[in-house]
Amino acid sequence: MAEKRYPMTAEGKKKLEQELEDLKLKKRPEIIERIKIARGFGDLSENSEYTSAKDEQSVVESRISEIKTMLQYAEVVDVNDVDANEVSVGKKVTFQEADEEPETYQIVGSAESDPLAGKISNDSPIAQSLLGKKVGDTVTIETPGGAFAVKIINVEN
Rank of each mutant, 00 (worst) to 15 (best):
A2F: 14
E3H: 15
E3M: 15
K4P: 08
K4W: 11
A10R: 15
G12I: 13
K13Q: 13
E17Q: 15
Q18H: 12
L20C: 12
L20V: 12
D22T: 15
L23Y: 07
L23G: 13
K24V: 09
K26A: 11
R28L: 15
P29D: 08
I31N: 01
I32L: 15
R34D: 13
G40I: 03
G42T: 05
D43I: 06
S45L: 07
N47K: 09
S48H: 09
T51G: 07
K54R: 10
D55H: 08
E56H: 01
E56G: 02
E56R: 05
Q57F: 11
S58Q: 09
V59S: 08
V59T: 07
V59A: 10
V60F: 09
S62Y: 11
E66H: 07
K68V: 10
Q72S: 14
Q72D: 14
Y73D: 05
V76E: 08
V76L: 05
V76Q: 05
V77T: 06
D78K: 11
D83W: 04
D83K: 11
D83A: 13
N85M: 10
N85Q: 12
V87M: 11
K91F: 04
K92M: 04
K92A: 02
A98P: 02
A98H: 03
D99M: 03
D99F: 04
E101T: 08
T104Q: 01
Y105L: 00
G109N: 01
S110G: 00
S113I: 00
L116W: 00
N122W: 01
N122C: 08
D123H: 03
S124V: 01
Q128C: 02
S129R: 02
G132V: 10
K134F: 10
K134P: 04
D137K: 05
T140P: 02
E142T: 10
T143N: 09
A147M: 13
F148G: 12
F148H: 13
A149V: 11
N157T: 14
